[in-house]
Structure formats: C-alpha cells, structure tokens
C-alpha cells in the first residue's frame, strides 16, 4: 500500500456503495467494523443481515415476512 492511499466511493444504482481503500466503518451506534478487503460494499437499504456490509438482500423482490415484522417492530 502506498503512503497516500486513495479512497473512492462509487454509488451502485439500486445497490450498495462500493468503497475502495476503506480500513474501517463506524456505525451509527459507534460500533467499529474493520476490513482488510481492497473493495467493500456498504449496505444502503438497511435490509442486510451483515451490517454494515451489503449481503445482496436488496436483490430479493419481496421482503421476508420476518424482516417486515422486524421493521414494523422498530
């Protein structure tokens, strides 16, 4: 890795944010998630079971019943 690491963010249409060069993500609750992947996909739809990472839940046509229940409860 070069000393001056360049970080870039790409918005994927209807999908996550693709981030190159991230070392860690700080969640709204202050939770720090570290990564050593060169590129990560950050969830934007809040449907992921692996926050802050995208797990492709946005690709399902319908929300699962459990998730709808969870969302109503919050």
């Amino acid at each position: 890795m070069s000393a001056a690491k360049r970080v870039s963010v790409i918005e994927c249409p209807g999908g996550p944010l693709l981030v190159r060069g991230a070392d860690e993500v700080v969640g709204v609750d202050g939770q720090v998630t570290a990564t050593d992947r060169a590129v990560v996909a950050l969830c934007r739809c809040n449907r992921s079971d692996r926050m802050p990472w995208c797990d492709d839940s946005h690709r399902t046509r319908r929300r699962s019943k459990q998730k709808q229940k969870d969302e109503r409860a919050t």
Partner: peptide, 11 residues
C-alpha cells in the same frame, strides 16, 4: 461468499 460476492457482483 455472501459478503465477497455482493462486492464482486457490482464489480
């Protein structure tokens, strides 16, 4: 492959 392929799909 859950998290990796969600990235790979976009790439």
């Amino acid at each position: 492959h859950v998290v990796a392929d969600a990235v790979h799909e976009q790439l």
